[in-house]
Design a protein around this nucleic acid. Sequence first.
RNA 1: GGGCCGCUAGCUCAAUUGGCAGAGCAGGGGCCUUUUAAGCCCUUGGUUACAGGUUCGAGUCCUGUGCGGCUCACCA
Length: 507
Amino acid sequence: MRTLTEIEQYRLTKLERMRDRGESPYPHRVQRTHSIASAVQAFDEAVSDGTDPHETDLKAILCGRLRSVRTMGKLAFAHIEDEGGRIQLLLRADVLGVDRLKQFEDDFDLGDIIQAEGTLLRTRTGETTLNTSALRMLAKSISPLPAAKEVDEEGERKTYSAFDNAEARYRERYADLAVNERVREIFRARARILRALRMFLDNHDFLEVETPVLQPIYGGAAAKPFSTHHNQLHQDLFLRISFELYLKRLLVGGFEKVYEIGRDFRNEGVSLTHNPEFTQLEFYWAYADYHDVMCLTEQMVAYVAEQVTGSTMVTYQGQQLDFNPPWERCSLSDLVAEYSSIDYRKFPTAEGLAMVMREKGHDPSMGSTRGKLIESLFSACVESRLMQPTFVVDYPRDISPLAKTTEKDPETVERFEVFMGGLELCNAFTELNDPFDQEERFAQMGREYSNESGDGHPMDLDYLRAMRYGMPPNGGFGMGVDRLVMLLTDQRSIREVILFPHLRAKQ
RNA sequence: GGGCCGCUAGCUCAAUUGGCAGAGCAGGGGCCUUUUAAGCCCUUGGUUACAGGUUCGAGUCCUGUGCGGCUCACCA
């Protein structure tokens, strides 16, 4: 253990003093008759019949973290906090005992986890309070929590000297959570969002499944993977970058509606909206196309917003977002034409498009395909300006190798992405189910039949084999769950909605 | 990976042109039987992220390193 600070040294001597008098600072067993919230509720019910609230005989044993102490000689007030609430303790020398009160003042610190037994009453100022007759240490806190001060003022909790250094908060998320209720609330909302997503999909007869995280051949997205190795099998493996190819194998197997919520890993840059591991929702729906998926998507997100926030109108970074279906559907080509004043339909080759982009002041990277040029135009000119939920529809074929082309244009695929609040949220398409077309698309992407020579991305022959057995036409969908959490909890950074975001190692 | 900005006590922050490193809270010693950012008196606490350099003198200026924030690039 590293060198203790002065404060930690003091706390250690308090701990030793407790041990010396036979009081364990870390006892095995705990008593607890009520959560704080249920004790307060029981008290309110007990006095609702006119019982004198200053003199009840309602007993409770409560547990929680000591969050504030005010001592005044033969009397002290304190607050303890458990997950559901906070309550004041009244510690009187004539109830608790003079010696025990002195021990409390000497040996208990902010941050200690304690147990308090007593009867409930209301103080002169009207606060529900436990008149404490016995105190027990449950876990002595050695290191001081960040010294935020909180106070209820006219119903609103004001925080002073908040622990708000982002790096310190992420590195010591436990301290952040212990001290910042607002942060705990984000992760409760996150849990509700996941529950609502599952509820919605389960109610629509989707089957939740789990597919491999460790994959011999990665695919389903364009990202670079993390790689690892199985020692006994002498096999190189990748952490998945998407679930797509496994989930569609399940449609071949006869499941018609499947979904998975889990972790994807992408070895790419870290940013406000990218964490190396993130939570993805994907579903695949047999006998549906991307129009059906759009309808389900807007219903699903509106349902989750309603369940989690109570409304389909959500404030994100000062903007009102309206999740109420139907959402606007705009073609990619129209949006790009509108915002960049380049109508790429008039430039059928990559060279021609790159030229007009340069004329308009863009800097297209050399050797990009036409689809990549269109995509870069979109992200530069359009993406951050889409505030209200918007389906961006119909993408270039060469950047969408798993999507079926439209019936009228072989260079365009039936694909949509959802943007809102300036964020990309979803990606979906009418899935390609023609094994010959799929093989050709893989080959065009540079997938190789043999990977023995080295770095080429191998052809996923097993996936093609599956498709040759017959894959029902289907619509597929992917959504970044962390980003949905950002939108519904009004957070600008993905790190605020991931409990332990990835940070560079210290030292 | 590039650019810009930041890093001062356990936490939140000051420190004039380069001139004695400070405050509030937390901590320690006291007083106090209805407080709630309790109050009052006294008080401890610093390798100013790290390593160099310039200077009589560096938290402040210069160089490098680390970590972070923002941003750009990358990212079907």
